[in-house]
Design a protein around this nucleic acid. Structure first.
Ligand SMILES: [Mn+2]
Ligand SMILES: [Mn+2]
Ligand SMILES: [Mn+2]
Ligand SMILES: [Mn+2]
Lengths: 141, 141
DNA sequence: GTGAAAGTTTAGCATTGGCTAAACTTTTGG
DNA sequence: CCAAAAGTTTAGCCAATGCTAAACTTTCAC
């Protein structure tokens, strides 16, 4: 017999998911961005990452150190940064998800600019089920 | 003559917006939740906030102090908490936005549970333009 | 009315993710 | 080839958001 789950448990689960999403967000965005830079320019340098992320060089350096401890990027001192296998996986998955969300917003009727901006935040909170629903919408629209 | 804006400037603007969204997120969620509790139970107590947010009592106490310094809530020691005029505004605006996003996801075809969970994160990254597009979609679907 | 339970606050700690300034290394132009 | 520019790293700072443990206050049950 299914006992009713307390509304607090349901609510807190949503907040917990959101906090978990946020805890991975920066790593995902960095990997995606590094992949983009390598694709566009052949390498990903700290300055370029900083410029596109909109943060200082020092912040980038510190974050890259964390990411390399987490096994997502590899770097040697004063050199451009590379993605590990794990890092590539995040980058590709992130790119796919990002594209679907952005195209979905466009299909919904917002401007290109708004789709770009809003998708940067939304992408991290879209579950597999919702992503599928967005892709389905795209396929028929 | 319109000079082309660098792709870095465009990209960093999106990340900046996302960071700004995150900096307001907790305040919005607290105000919305406090309003809900007052509506449901007549008052908002620390324990109930903690239970629904999925964090410890101590975390709630510390956060409430910040919010009261920001003029969003009012509290006296060992008593339940209340919203200021500003806090009510955030709560109502947040509720409206949250409802639109959740109903929109439902209309898109995801389960009630997924709509609840995903909307908790997504709501903070939906611009006025996108919110309007979602409302429009709801109106015709 | 009093003692235990429930709720709140405070203290102290950790991590993340920002910043500036200064030191250091690499690249580049002449 | 070498000085200046460009890029990177380190040090030290801060705020936000989480935690546990301990102290304190209020409420409840008897
Ligand atoms: Mn992305
Ligand atoms: Mn993003
Ligand atoms: Mn977010
Ligand atoms: Mn939320």
């Amino acid at each position: 017999m299914k006992r009713k789950i307390s509304s607090s448990a349901l609510r807190s689960a949503a907040f917990n998911r959101t906090r978990a999403d946020h805890s991975h967000e920066l790593a995902h965005d960095y990997c995606e961005l590094i992949a983009e830079l390598i694709d566009e320019k052949g390498e990903a340098r700290g300055t370029d990452i900083a410029l596109r992320m909109g943060v200082s060089n020092a912040t980038v350096a510190k974050t890259l150190k964390r990411l390399s401890e987490q096994g997502l990027v590899e770097q040697e001192p004063y050199r451009a940064v590379f993605l590990t296998g794990e890092g590539w996986k995040l980058a590709e998955d992130g790119k796919r998800r990002h594209e679907i969300v952005e195209k979905f917003l466009l299909a919904l009727g917002v401007s290109q600019r708004t789709a770009e901006v809003d998708s940067e935040g939304i992408e991290h909170h879209v579950s597999a089920e919702t992503l599928k629903a967005m892709a389905r919408f795209l396929a028929r629209s």
